[in-house]
Amino acid sequence: MAEVFNTIVRSVVVSGAATALASLWSIPLAYTLIFRSRGSVLLEAIIETLVGVPTVVLGLLLYILFSSSGPLGFLGLLYTPHAIIIGESILVTPLIVSMGYRSLRGTAHLYYELALSIGADRIQRMRIVVGQSLPGVVAACITGFSRAIGELGIAMMVGGNITGYTRVMTTAIALEVTKGNFEEAIILGVTLLLITISISVSVKLISRVWMIWRSS
């Protein structure tokens, strides 16, 4: 039972860290994409396609990179939670960028000019533009988190599903299925769903409260 609890906590922490890491570069990327005129259609199409990249393919690429005979083998990242975090942050980047891009696009130019007119510098301009579409950006991050916590391929390939170290909920579910313990797998699956939903709801509530608090 303790191990199940640890697995749940590990899942949330790993996917949360991956999402946070990904949003660090994804939101600025979405922001710069808006003010790009040339080739934006092509970039948009590429990013939207990458949203659906099969997780095992990404997992395999990372495995080859991190393998002790691979180019990044000296880092010793294979079969660690850090490898899963790196993999998942790459996985959710296209998703956060494309969703963030869509939510920023509508209002970005208006608030950008507004920010310019009050003499904001580059960083401040970005903060104003992103801040005005915060619910959309938060929604993008939540979707990224759901994708990260629900993915199996990367966690299996570069994490290795090691008990007490890299086992996350999806790999635990896959393991129970191969054992033939379908009931346990269902229970874990429902738990995964409930956790994801409750985290999404609480993040949305917090961001809404924050918006109200800031505007008052």
Binding site: S67, Y79, M156, G160, N161, I162, G164, R167, T171, L175
Partner: peptide
């Protein structure tokens, strides 16, 4: 529960690859 005892919960292929890596 020993530190050197790695429980991978994986298939034979992957376990062998892990043994080779570690």
């Amino acid at each position: 529960n020993r530190r050197w005892y790695v429980e991978c919960g994986c298939g034979m292929d992957q376990a062998l690859i892990m043994a080779s890596e570690l």
